[in-house]
């Protein structure tokens, strides 16, 4: 399967198989995104057996934003592309705090009414909602 190189944008590799759609959601790339996006699902991988890859043209993802991807796919690697070359490469790490993204698993949380979400990671790696105090696993937030 051949996908064109991009001149400027982000390539997200080593995404857990089946999680590409959630990565797109985290990056808020939907049907109105104006540039090319390639989504590869269940790509054979020596390390992971199968993985997903997302190539996004025209969007450079910040490290802070990229780290949210770790909620659904720890170990995903981010390649920032400029002038058709890799400018920066890093592996996502679970963020200590998630703010303004994700949703609380508690349907009765005040954030379900539209308040901006905020979660903090606790010692055991689970996240606590700043508002309703409900604890959730990382993947439950997205």
């Amino acid at each position: 399967m051949q996908v064109d190189k991009i001149e400027m944008g982000t390539v997200i590799d080593h995404i857990r198989a089946g999680k590409a759609a959630k990565v797109m959601k985290i990056l808020e790339i939907g049907e109105n995104y104006p540039h090319r996006v390639a989504i590869l699902i269940n790509v054979p991988s020596k390390m992971m057996k199968t993985k997903d890859i997302v190539k996004i043209e025209g969007k450079v993802v910040s490290e802070e934003h990229a780290n949210i991807i770790a909620l659904v796919s720890p170990g995903a690697s981010i390649n920032i592309i400029r002038n058709s070359a890799i400018e920066k490469k890093f592996t996502v790490a679970l963020p200590k705090e998630v703010s303004g993204l994700g949703r609380c698993a508690n349907p009765n949380c005040i954030t379900a009414e539209g308040a901006k979400t905020k979660f903090r990671m606790e010692g055991d790696g689970r996240y606590r909602c700043h508002f309703c105090e409900r604890r959730s696993g990382a993947e439950e937030l997205v």
């Binding site: 609380c104 508690n106 009765n108 949380c109 005040i110 954030t111 379900a112 009414e113 308040a115 909602c129 700043h130 508002f131 309703c132 105090e133 409900r134």
Partner: peptide
């Protein structure tokens, strides 16, 4: 007092 959890924190 409010029925939504987290309302006082907000």
């Amino acid at each position: 007092r409010h029925p939504k959890e987290g309302s006082a924190r907000l």
